[in-house]
Amino acid sequence: MQGRTGLWRRAPVTVIVVALILAAIAVVALLAPWISPADPARQTLIARLRPPGHTTSTMTYWLGTDELGRDLLSRIVWGARASLLVALLSVTVSLTVGTLLGMLAAWKRGWVEIAIMRFVDIMLSIPAILLAVLTVAVLGPGFGKLILVLGLTRWPRYTRVAYAQTLQVASLPYIKAAELGGAGTLRILFRHVLPNIAGPLTVVATAEFGLMILFEAGLSFLGLGIQPPQPSWGSIMSAGRQYVERAWWITLFPGACLFLLVLSVNVLGDWLRDRLDPRSRTR
């Protein structure tokens, strides 16, 4: 333990860079109403599909305009909000649901295990996007419902990982020792099992984080996600796709943002997983 000053001690440069990128995106998303140069929904039809740097008498479009003459920079700034929030909340929902069910299946065994794991197989055999479309079609679109849909269709992946890991950990002597010591089921699951299966789950969650943003994009593209004119990175990209040969900037800039965000989350997730393991803390 000697000289451990904080979480960030001896973080590699890449991790610091990546953390700064994430922080920047988060700040932009938080401060969108104040830093956005224009109203993201204001259309200027005479200034459609203008390239980055285009200047009119009223303002400069640093990242150009989209197919309805809206300022792309403002839309990306506002879109960060939607994309980040959707990804964060849906990952939280699916991670929680999936992990709990996976641990339960592996701990209880018997018919609980069969019921949960076969249900997982069923869920995984249905294309997630189809399931999401179906659910939205029944429930109707909306931000809260979008989170619910994404969260409740993506949990099986966590369940599989949590299940396999719990099975493995549950057979270890320290779990037996905890049981002999008199620890209850909840304590064993949350104090002994969960911290020791958190690593692989973190990896899944960081991978899913990027996927969630893309899923949101897909659903928004189908008109089932974030409702226009509210922007999200996914919906900007999907809308810009058909203009890509005339106006590459509409897809490139939100795409680059998305790329940076997903990459940053993955790098940071990997590092955090190692960092949170006490075995790697001191050497």
Binding site: P173, Y174, A177, L180, G182, P195, N196
Partner: peptide, 18 residues
């Protein structure tokens, strides 16, 4: 189990690493 406890073969696996 207050009256009976156990010591296992592999001490590396007998303690929760976290």
């Amino acid at each position: 189990r207050r009256n009976v406890q156990m010591i296992f073969q592999d001490p590396a696996l007998s303690l929760n690493p976290r």
